[in-house]
């Protein structure tokens, strides 16, 4: 996974984290009894979603790199 791809995925993950926080504060929090509990749950959910997104992006990048290398190898064999 190149630095540029990691940076891009990381940046989107952070945006997802913040997005979940805003959505949670605006919509979900009113259904919670105590605020502190809701904050903890919110953080857990937000981190989980962000991490999931990052890992998916990483795995997709690794797979794509593997496929690209496979293609190059195939071309090399053809040329020889």
């Amino acid at each position: 996974m190149s630095f540029s791809q990691a940076w891009d995925a990381g940046f989107r993950a952070v945006l997802i984290y913040i997005g979940v926080v805003f959505a949670w504060l605006g919509l979900v929090e009113r259904y919670f009894g105590s605020q502190s509990v809701s904050v903890v749950v919110m953080n857990v959910v937000a981190v989980a979603l962000a991490l999931a997104f990052f890992l998916r992006a990483r795995s997709r990048a690794v797979a794509e790199r593997a496929r690209a290398e496979a293609e190059v190898r195939a071309l090399m064999e053809e040329a020889v």
Binding site: V21, F22, L25, G26, E29, V39
Partner: peptide, 11 residues
């Protein structure tokens, strides 16, 4: 004040 400002603004 933690996230109170965000709660107030969002509401």
């Amino acid at each position: 004040v933690g996230l109170d400002n965000y709660r107030i603004v969002l509401a």
